[in-house]
């Protein structure tokens, strides 16, 4: 596999420098732009494998960039950089088609994990693994069997649907809306989702109060932890 190319879109030179240095050290090819329009042009021109996109850009809103890309049919994974208190912006970016987000200020370890998950997800779209494993959790997607530490766990169909969604996007955040539209096929109340997630945790987590598989991204959605 050739080194993946990552486009950094941020108007702050120090952030670009940090990202460039740390990503290059991990063996990625790095290109960068400072605003939305040149980002769109650059994506068109060099087809990067992943875009790290800051939401607050001087010319085009980062959300607008995502909207334009997705409207154009471009499926390049997008990792959004946003500030802590901007939960609404994050959800909107994700619902528009961004793959994941990292909150500024962020640690490089977290950034790499997100990038890897997003890249892997792109590869998996071509050929899904039949059995998913994360520490003691095992999900057999073909036979719809869930095992925790070797023992089989009985899930209701809805619980299984939620888990399957999370597994399909393992490591990536899923917004409430994504989960709900996938599992219930449309609008439903977020509290139903919360109740099912609680039940699911009771069944698969060792300590449901401090879950290690299904993590809550407060105000946004859920994420299945990848080992």
């Amino acid at each position: 596999m050739t080194a993946a190319t990552i486009l950094i879109v941020d108007d702050e030179p120090p952030i670009r420098r940090l990202l460039r240095t740390s990503l290059a050290s991990q063996g990625f090819q790095v290109i960068e732009t400072a605003d939305g329009r040149s980002a769109l042009a650059e994506i068109e021109r060099s087809c990067p494998d992943l875009v790290v996109l800051d939401l607050g850009l001087p010319d085009l809103d980062g959300l607008e960039v995502i909207r334009l890309l997705r409207a154009d049919g471009n499926v390049v994974p997008i990792l959004v950089l946003s500030s802590r208190s901007d939960e609404k912006g994050k959800v909107e970016a994700l619902d528009l088609g961004a793959d994941d987000y990292v909150t500024k200020p962020f640690g490089t370890a977290e950034l790499f994990a997100r990038i890897r998950a997003a890249l892997r997800h792109r590869l998996q779209q071509q050929g899904e693994q039949p059995i998913f494993r994360s520490s003691d959790l095992e999900v057999d997607l073909v036979h719809r069997i869930v095992r925790v530490r070797g023992g089989e766990v009985k899930l209701t169909p809805k619980e299984y649907d939620i888990l399957r969604m999370l597994v399909a996007h393992a490591g990536k955040v899923l917004t409430h809306r994504m989960l709900m539209s996938e599992v219930w096929g449309g609008e439903t109340d977020v509290q139903y989702l919360r109740i099912y997630v609680r039940q699911l945790r009771q069944k698969i987590e060792i300590n449901p109060e401090r879950p290690q598989y299904i993590l809550t991204e407060t105000g946004i959605g859920y994420r299945l932890r990848m080992e």
């Binding site: 109340d189 977020v190 509290q191 919360r194 109740i195 997630v197 609680r198 449901p208 109060e209 401090r210 879950p211 993590l215 809550t216 991204e217 407060t218």
Partner: peptide, 11 residues
């Protein structure tokens, strides 16, 4: 919104 307290505690 209706929230599960344990969920928030965990996160």
């Amino acid at each position: 919104a209706l929230v599960d307290l344990g969920d928030v505690v965990g996160s």
